[in-house]
Design a protein around this nucleic acid. Structure first.
Lengths: 337, 337
DNA sequence: CTGAAAGCGCTTACAG
DNA sequence: CTGAAAGCGCTTACAG
């Protein structure tokens, strides 16, 4: 005599309690794995009822009681950027593995939207925050000060008490990546290098450029043969395109270019195509990010690979550490060149 | 005498009630815009308190009472696909505009994950579901049968009662897009066309292929000069690559190829590059999707543009209609060729 | 080993 | 025009 009538109305703890003749408290404990606090018979009886009635805990009830849900908010500067999309994908999967879900908030690099989202997420009692942004905002300052569970990715906490100990963070050593890019270009015979970065760049782009210039200088490139070009634009595609225009307007163009992101390199490529400049023959272009797509449609691009797909685990690991009350150290992942 | 002491502990309705000397009920009504049900003085007094104390409604409390939250779940087949990422971005923005937030669930085209997520989202009492997937699963069948608020995007409801009236849906006429692709290839002189699609394709890819073949036949291409190639793989990149291998292994290669998605075209490109086949000179390649990226790094690709960026509004509009108790009609958006 | 009770923050008939 | 009260589903000290 199978009792497998499915969901006639929502099944709550009370439903199970009524069906098994025990109290709600007991059901709650067992459902939450506290099986040692009840007799074995009760445990199996309840587990059977849970199974046959298809009980699933209502997360809202739980969240209200505990003041925190199993939702984690990810705030990203700009989802159109494939890098952000990759991090989001990886993080979503890692969260799922620990039974959490992710809400995605695109701040479009706007301070007001960032604060609006932080506020909104707090009203949702989310259990944690992942910030792939380093825009400063009053709300963020507040969050950091209050010690909310937040992990920064790519870009460190702009309000870190000690800049050398950024706290929960997942990223790479951008300065070293920039230097590696310099070595690579040098090895290809480049002696009049150029580096392109956004006018309103984040620390990430600044560090990559700094590493590149530092290394090029060490290699003996004089400052006047090292072009550093910035261009405005939210989209790095536009940045690369505009900067390439500036670069090639000068008499002797560069013999090698670093775009500090893949997207910048794409922008350079478009300009070069339009002008009949052949890449890499006339001028090699390299970048930092190493999107998988490059191998498919941008074979001309030599890009230092950042393991974004790995970010997910590390981010979630740090979040869990915070939940346990620990203070995680920054995870600086190796890039591959 | 400004009273702007900020948040010493969470500010709830009770806090406001205590501070203003009215009941929680009254505060709740006013906060929810029922200002006509209270005296003007009370209204302003409470609004001031809300402002100065920085009260933000706790959405968890609200959701528990109402049985539904202001969160909308988007289930997507595969976030690595830029098309999905675009739809997610657009939808997130549209939801924000109406004060909702979005959780993102990547089902990886797996039936079990889809059901797991549907279940999880229900435990979260989400207010709506957006499905960019048409994998069949028992859980989905259940959802549709129960009349849950779900909007399908790109791929129609696989459990629609009447296939010609798919209900809440946002997409394009894929058959027509396939036909348009045929016209375009024909105009470029293609007389030995090929079409590439995934082995385990969705209705979307099937319809695009069907439209293409129908139109090519109308144009007088005999069946034996119309190559239809399928290749396995979750990633369309792999599909395109493998299928191109098959196509060019045959003696006379095609003189024009339709990849039913941008990614398939990218895969073809890689194979062609490796084999020294020049695109488009030796063989034009076109596709359907029209990612913005094409203009930057895939100038060789002629792609029919699907207005994914517009999907967001339409999806949210349909969701709102459902919430109002209406039965929205499918929105078939125009593609641009 | 088990249960009654309080309470998380909100909304909403209902009564006045 | 306003308030007391019930209740959404859960957890968790506390008492037995």
């Amino acid at each position: 005599m199978e009792k497998s009538r499915k969901a006639a109305g929502p099944v709550s703890l009370a439903t199970i309690a009524a069906a098994t003749g025990v109290s709600i408290s007991t059901v709650s404990r067992i459902v939450n794995g506290q099986t040692h606090r009840a007799s074995p018979e009760t445990v199996t009886r309840i587990q059977q009822a849970v199974e046959s009635l298809g009980y699933k805990p209502n997360q809202i009830g739980r969240a209200l009681k505990q003041g925190r849900s199993r939702v984690v908010a990810m705030l990203t500067a700009n989802l159109n950027n494939p890098v952000m999309a990759m991090i989001a994908t990886a993080t979503e999967a890692a969260l799922r593995d620990i039974g959490h879900v992710m809400t995605l908030c695109d701040t479009h690099d706007r301070e007001d939207l960032q604060d609006e989202y932080l506020q909104a997420m707090r009203s949702q009692s989310v259990g944690g925050y992942i910030l792939v942004t380093n825009i400063k905002s009053p709300g963020l300052a507040d969050f950091v000060a209050r010690g909310e569970p937040v992990v920064f990715a790519c870009r460190p906490n702009p309000y870190a008490a000690d800049p050398d100990a950024p706290g929960a963070f997942v990223g790479i050593d951008n300065e070293a990546a920039g230097a590696a890019a310099a070595d690579r270009l040098w090895a290809r015979g480049c002696r009049s290098p150029a580096v392109i970065m956004p006018l309103e760049g984040s620390v990430v782009t600044l560090e990559r450029e700094a590493g590149f210039c530092r290394r090029m200088t060490e290699l003996g490139i004089p400052p006047d043969r090292l072009a550093r070009v910035k261009a405005p634009g939210l989209s790095h595609l536009d940045v690369g395109y505009a900067a390439a225009g500036t670069l090639f307007a000068g008499r002797p163009g560069p013999d090698g270019i670093l775009g500090v992101s893949d997207q910048i390199a794409y922008g350079v490529y478009r300009f070069a195509m339009e002008q009949g400049i052949r890449i890499p023959d006339d001028c090699p272009v390299i970048s930092i990010d190493g999107s998988d797509l490059n191998g498919w449609i941008a074979p001309w691009l030599d890009s230092i690979h950042v393991p974004y797909a790995e970010f997910g685990h590390h981010i979630v690991g740090q979040l869990q550490a915070i939940w346990r009350g620990e203070t995680p150290e920054a995870a600086i992942l190796p890039f591959h060149d």
